[in-house]
């Protein structure tokens, strides 16, 4: 055992030694159960700090300049702002009750928040830290995606089972697209052409055409030896070149790698237990999964789609975001 361990560590040391000195990114993980955010260095893959935050931290995102983290402290009914220079909480935003997930506009000026308890999407202007609009949506709004051109925002409602398209110019719903049971996440393709919406209980990902706003493809997942009920798609991320999509499959403990041209699943990457959210490093070399029940995150090599290492974080890791370049 000792021999194996030392072997492993020397191999790791070697790997670190020969790696090109790409700038290290900071990985921020919200831990739903123990009210903390774990900060992990993406290069050493070690925990560098644990930040005490509000109650039940879930959705997490970062400003485009990397200076501020926005964090949904769901049970405190607020969004906390963390200064990444000091890792201190420096302020809060008026989120509305029970904020769970949100999305930052491409220009960095607006935050769109899903308020699960009130069937609302709250639009917050970050400069003035004020609510500029509340948009009534379906029951239990959760997933939030915004098109890279900033024109369309998609919210998913978990009990209504819809993807609501919202025109960001008017803050009004323009289209409602019925998807499968309990839609959790919406992710646009980098070229604005499609939105991918995961359905946790339905077990599928619906690919919605952003022109026609109709479902053009439904992706389902099959893993030998696993009953279909255990396959519960949640987080979705698409590579910057638009070629591959990663789908976190919840209690299936795997991340599916999907070819965005053929919509075929090319691989299932075994990570940790109950995998929910995903984030790329800005260089797109790594994607990181949060594995809630095993209390860890997994670094996956995007080139090979092999898991590289898992790192223990806090209790029930939920969301993850990586500092920009």
């Amino acid at each position: 055992m000792l021999g194996r361990l030392s072997c492993l560590s020397s191999a790791l040391a070697l790997a670190t030694g020969v790696a090109t000195p790409a700038s290290a990114y900071m990985v921020y993980v919200s831990n739903e159960k123990d009210n903390t955010v774990t900060v992990v260095d993406s290069e050493t893959m070690e925990v560098v700090q644990t930040i005490e935050v509000g109650q039940r931290p879930r959705g997490i995102t970062i400003s485009h300049d990397g200076k501020l983290i926005y964090l949904c402290a769901s049970d405190d009914d607020t969004i906390e702002i963390i200064d990444t220079a000091t890792n201190q909480i420096v302020g809060s935003l008026p989120s509305g009750p029970d904020p769970e997930l949100f999305v930052l506009s491409p220009d960095g000026g607006t935050l769109y928040v899903a308020n699960e308890d009130d069937n609302l999407v709250t639009v917050i202007d970050l400069d003035s830290k004020s609510v500029v609009a509340e948009i009534p949506v379906g029951v239990e709004p959760e997933g939030m995606g915004i098109s890279p051109d900033g024109k369309a925002m998609v919210n998913t409602s978990e009990t209504t089972n819809m993807a609501h398209f919202i025109d960001t110019a008017t803050n009004e719903i323009t289209h409602n697209v019925l998807v499968d049971s309990r839609p959790r996440f919406a992710e646009f393709k980098p070229d604005n052409s499609e939105v991918w919406v995961s359905a946790e209980i339905g077990g599928t990902v619906s690919v919605i055409d952003n022109e026609s706003r109709e479902i053009k493809q439904k992706i389902s997942f099959e893993i030998p030896g696993l009953r279909s009920e255990a396959i519960q798609p949640v987080g979705v991320r698409i590579t910057a070149d638009g070629k591959k999509a990663y789908v976190a499959l919840g209690p299936a403990n795997r991340v599916a790698v999907v070819n965005t041209e053929t919509y075929e699943v090319e691989k299932y990457v075994l990570v940790g237990q109950r995998v929910w959210q995903l984030a790329f490093t800005p260089d797109q070399k790594t994607i990181i999964s949060t594995n809630g029940v095993s209390n860890d995150i997994t670094f996956i090599d995007v080139a090979t789609d092999e898991p590289v290492q898992s790192v223990t974080v806090g209790a029930l890791p939920w969301g993850v975001v990586v500092s920009p370049q």
Partner: peptide, 10 residues
Amino acid sequence: ADNNTTGSFL
């Protein structure tokens, strides 16, 4: 009430 929220879109 849940059905009616959904129903308002449909």
